[in-house]
Design a protein around this nucleic acid. Structure first.
Lengths: 199, 199
DNA sequence: AGTTTTAGCAGACGATCGTTCGTTTGGTAA
DNA sequence: TTACCAAACGAACGATCGTCTGCTAAAACT
């Protein structure tokens, strides 16, 4: 039948699995991911699917890692060359809102969904989610701090408060879009973020 | 052995099941709820657990309904007798932050978690979650509108925007507390909400 | 007192879960 | 050409999933 894959194709297969796992987990949740479903969809055996990872938990971690990579490409990479401080912060808001509005993941922001799914559990997956979220909040706070130092935000501004509020708005925007399907989410979100940055 | 229950005890059993299901689902998710686990914890048979509901989906709906009742008691009932408009809006923020900070549910706000878990699915459970969230957003917007009419908020204020932002902050606060365990979430949340109401 | 109703149990059902074997197959190196 | 290796397969494992069918026994009704 179809020719077997060579050693060089292994990574290719792995990536294909992760790609599809991202789509599935985006809709059904990381825990709702199923080896059997994945195998059926990819026309593979269950052993072939899980073989390159070792366990379902390892597959979950790889899926999470892949989703984070997508997120970084869609949001962070688009603002990395913008001048640090307030300009970059504004660019982040713009890229973020566009990302949320688009169809990067079929079930909305993957990291947001994963964080709410695992926030009551323990283990490596939860730890990975927490550290990713933590890193992102620190990035936001750092940019806000730079903005303060450059005089683009009031001296009394708390950078971590700015990070908290921007993140909350993004999470809330994701909820509004996915649950409610409201069409004006992008405008609402950007308006609210702008108000945070115009204190 | 143990005496059988009377007809009057049926509702009691049902409520006990729902109560425990709320705790379980708060941590593991509404879909992670398991008849077997529930039966073991309550020293009942699986048939006995699901008997009073009919199916797992009906049990999920009852659990959701129960959680919403708890939420209403913890948040809405505490502000229902406050003067409508800005005063009630402020009271809501206060009660909300207290509720989020407390340990009403072991896994954080049930409705928030459920909304992120089901926002990529379809069916009665998702519909119930959506309508509950929708109702709450309309309540918030109504209070904001009253506040505008009473002159406590600027005339140009968009009530639905206020509702959107307050809800986003609450959701973000829940995430911050559950995932990150930050201790100053309450202060951050109230400060942000106050800023929304002081435009 | 006799009948019906009801709550719950015990147990089994097919399906599917994640995991683990031994095997096959194609590519690579000796 | 031969020996080896890694990728993926097919098949099975025990466990658990949600659901269903009888059955028991207490309570309620007549």
């Amino acid at each position: 039948m179809s020719p077997r894959k060579t050693a060089a194709d292994a990574r290719q297969t792995r990536e294909a699995i992760v790609d599809h796992a991202i789509d599935l987990a985006s809709l059904e949740g990381l825990e709702g991911l199923t080896i059997g479903r994945l195998a059926t969809d990819m026309h593979m055996s269950k052993a072939g699917v899980v073989g390159g990872f070792g366990s379902k938990e390892a597959l979950q971690l790889a899926t999470l890692e892949g989703a984070i990579a997508v997120w970084r490409r869609e949001v962070w990479d688009r603002v990395a060359d913008v001048e640090p401080g307030l300009p970059r912060l504004r660019a982040v808001c713009e890229a973020w809102a566009t990302y949320l509005q688009g169809d990067v993941f079929p079930g909305g922001c993957f990291l947001t969904a994963a964080s709410f799914e695992f926030d009551g559990r323990s283990g490596p997956v939860r730890d990975a989610i927490e550290s990713a979220m933590d890193l992102w909040l620190r990035v936001l706070a750092r940019e806000a701090r730079t903005a303060v130092e450059q005089g683009d935000l009031p001296q009394r501004t708390d950078p971590e408060q700015v990070a908290f509020e921007l993140n909350a708005l993004a999470v809330g925007a994701n909820q509004a879009r996915q649950l409610h399907g409201a069409g004006d989410v992008r405008e609402r979100t950007l308006a609210a973020m702008e108000r945070v940055l115009a204190a």
